[in-house]
Design a protein around this nucleic acid. Structure first.
Lengths: 342, 342
DNA sequence: TTGAAAGCGCTAACAT
DNA sequence: ATGTTAGCGCTTTCAA
């Protein structure tokens, strides 16, 4: 291994000068700079990143925590790829590296250890859910002064850094759209309740339905709950088909469930876009490939990842206080709810 | 920050002893061990990972290189999630961390810098393509003695570490299956030629078609090329539809193209599974949600990632020589080629 | 079974 | 504009 020392010798300068050249700090003669650079090139010298981290007491790593593997399939991989890409682009731009950690099932999740061992300077947590343990862990992190940010999950009553999307508004507009098309009995297929996402979607749905005069009783009667997986949507088809004479539209809390649902209903002879209107959520790639294409609510996952990384890194550098951001969502209309039932 | 020194003082032992306890090395009295552990707990001491890496001259990181972002959409995110999950599971199991790097467009790709700066001990490269620059870079890596492994990409004539899948066999079986169903004029929609995957798929196709007596001329006449994206499949629909009276089946080199193709054909009134048989490749999630569900070739991406990580880490530790592995693929039959045309 | 001490390669304050 | 030097927190020989 080539060290700074050898470069210094070859260039006939001190080690400190080599450092200065490589870090571009302090004043220096163009002459010296050149000599050092040449020496470095001849020796094929590359600064040791670990030694740098050590001396600077900064890892230069931004951690990203992904949920326990099987859970990934409940969410869409679409969501993770998008968020991850957004984070990746920003992180690279800022000169950091990205350290990926898959959560395990253990209580004492080991991502906290990445912090304590200072292997990461900050952390973005994906796919968190609002359970007592999770809250506890996050509070511990906070109390130990670690920098972290949640993406697409809100913890009411806490002041954690968060980058979320306006799911209330997204759901509201989705349901409103169905109403504009003349639908009245709009069932809602929600996902697991431990995600703030689910509560938000319900809230948007409730608001729109409320404006149309539906009371709590009516809503309860139209409520179904899956777990965001395609199969859970598929399984729900039978129950909804049973009530085909009262229900004329279904709003599903994500595309996967919507797709499973459409498949299940088709097998029963009930066609989305013809016999029933269906709207999904996420506007994943899959929404474009179903038949009929699925109307869905687009969430700016890439931007959310990018923004989370940006703010968090700024915070680590003391240029940013705590933050709670909410980005806009947008309804993308396709054929799954095309027919006008008015 | 709590250091080893403070723990040593509290426990009334030397710093070296604290290290021994935490690394479980060397003989020591159960007594001492306990005292140290208690002291560590009281002080909430956690070894500094960076300092460890520094002293050990090992980063403890396995790098994973992903292609330049826009490319992600050409491949399926399915492929990356699966491989990444496989790597992630293994890496965690082996006590390493996973450092993600998104490739940029620059010539001198900066993942080589991760190696030179010793930020990673080894690297898995995903989505590599067989271009002169890529070969050059990989040879440089090799000549500098870095440990890396390619997944799902073969470089003929080189002895790089590789974990690939049997795409020749997979394609062969896919085409054979179509023939068994009575199809004769089987068109082939391949992906970009810079991936060994494409050549392999063509080889399997060629072999099966050859056995059915097709000559080079006939094959050339049935060959189409997209770029693995859904749109490229969609755009190819028109050309294939033109020849609907001669062609009775299409084998597409990945699911995304197959799906785009099915959509395009449907718009023209040509239904997969009814008017034409279609087989895709990858057996991605999407294959299950199309209508009709897509027959496809399953590739063990998760296992490939896991295996690559395992071998590579073993190699770093000197327990494994260079390796070239090829895992089996499997045809998954669904309705897109269900009708029997015999 | 434990302690002492020499690094690991770099940064950053302080000197010059 | 450049050199000197004291760490950074840990591992690891060598001695005791």
């Amino acid at each position: 291994m080539v060290t700074r020392k050898e470069v210094a010798e070859l260039a006939g300068v001190s080690e400190a000068t080599v450092s200065r050249v490589f870090n571009g700090v302090g004043p220096m003669k163009a002459q010296t700079k050149l000599r050092v650079q040449e020496a470095a090139k001849t020796l094929n010298y590359h600064p040791n990143a670990i030694a740098q981290s050590f001396a600077r007491r900064k890892s230069g790593n931004l951690g990203v925590v992904l949920p326990y593997l099987p859970k990934v399939h409940l969410f869409s991989t679409y969501y993770f790829s998008e968020v991850l890409s957004g984070i990746g682009a920003k992180v690279k731009d800022k000169g950091y590296d990205l350290l990926l950690t898959f959560r395990s099932l253990d209580e004492e999740s080991d991502y906290i250890e990445r912090f304590r061992s200072q292997k990461v300077d900050a952390c973005i947590i994906l796919g968190a859910s609002d359970t007592p343990q999770e809250r506890e862990q996050l509070k511990t992190l906070e109390s130990e002064g670690h920098h972290f940010c949640l993406v697409n999950q809100h913890f009411a009553g806490e002041s954690f850094n968060e980058v979320d999307a306006d799911h209330i508004g997204g759901s509201y507009r989705a349901v409103k759209h169905l109403m504009d098309k003349g639908h009245k009995q709009i069932a809602f297929l929600n996902g697991s309740s431990q995600f703030s996402n689910s509560a938000d979607r319900y809230e948007g749905y409730r608001k729109a339905m409320g404006e149309a005069g539906k009371d709590a009783e009516a809503l309860r009667n139209l409520y179904y709950e899956g777990n965001y997986s395609r199969t859970s949507g598929y399984r729900m088809a039978a129950a909804l088909y049973e009530r085909r004479h009262e229900i004329d539209a279904i709003f599903a809390a994500n595309d996967r469930m919507a797709i499973g649902l459409m498949q299940g209903l088709r097998e029963l002879g009930w066609e989305a876009g013809r016999d029933v209107a269906i709207v999904g959520y996420d506007d994943s790639d899959a929404a474009r490939v179903t038949d009929p294409p699925l109307t869905s609510v687009a969430v700016p996952f890439y931007d959310m990842g990018s923004l989370a990384a940006e703010r968090l890194l700024a915070q680590v550098n003391g240029e940013q206080g705590s933050f709670q951001v909410k980005l806009d969502t947008e309804l993308v209309v396709r054929q799954s709810c095309s027919r006008n039932f008015s």
